[in-house]
Measured scan of single mutants.
Amino acid sequence: WEITFERNGKRITVRTTDHRLLELFEKLWRNGADERELERLAEEINR
Rank of each mutant, 00 (worst) to 15 (best):
E39W: 10
K10Q: 10
I45M: 08
W29H: 02
W29P: 00
E37H: 05
F5Y: 13
F5S: 00
T4G: 02
F25L: 05
A42V: 08
K27T: 14
K10H: 13
R30Y: 10
R40T: 11
N31C: 10
V14E: 00
R11Y: 15
D18G: 02
L41Q: 03
T16E: 01
E37C: 13
T4I: 11
R36P: 09
E23H: 14
L38I: 06
A42F: 07
A33W: 08
G9M: 03
T17F: 15
W1A: 06
K10P: 01
N8Y: 03
R7A: 11
R7N: 05
A42C: 07
G32I: 03
L28D: 01
I3G: 04
G9D: 04
L21W: 10
D18F: 05
W29N: 01
L21A: 11
T16N: 04
T17K: 12
E35P: 09
L21M: 13
V14K: 00
K10W: 14
L24K: 11
H19G: 09
L21Q: 09
L24Q: 11
E37W: 09
R36K: 14
E39P: 01
E26Y: 15
N46W: 08
A33S: 07
A33K: 04
R11W: 13
R11K: 14
E39M: 14
T4C: 05
I12D: 00
N46E: 07
R30K: 12
R20L: 11
T16L: 07
E2L: 05
A42P: 00
L38P: 00
T13V: 12
V14M: 05
T16H: 10
L41E: 02
A42H: 03
T13G: 01
R36Y: 15
D18M: 07
I12F: 14
N46T: 07
E37T: 14
R20Q: 11
D34Q: 05
E26W: 15
T4W: 05
G32L: 07
T17D: 11
V14T: 00
I3W: 13
E6R: 03
I45E: 02
R36N: 14
R40I: 12
R15E: 02
I45W: 05
R15T: 09
I12H: 03
T4H: 12
N46A: 09
I3F: 14
E39K: 06
V14D: 00
E23A: 14
E35S: 10
L28M: 13
W29R: 02
E23Q: 12
L38A: 01
I45R: 01
L22D: 00
L38S: 01
R40C: 10
K27Q: 14
R7F: 14
R20I: 10
A33Q: 05
L24W: 13
E23K: 14
G32Q: 06
E35H: 13
L41P: 00
E23C: 15
I3T: 06
R30M: 09
I3A: 10
R40H: 10
K27D: 08
L22R: 05
L22Q: 03
K10G: 02
K27Y: 15
T16D: 01
R15C: 04
N8A: 06
L21C: 08
E6Q: 08
W29T: 01
E6T: 10
V14H: 00
F5A: 02
N46M: 09
L28C: 07
E2D: 07
E6H: 08
G32C: 08
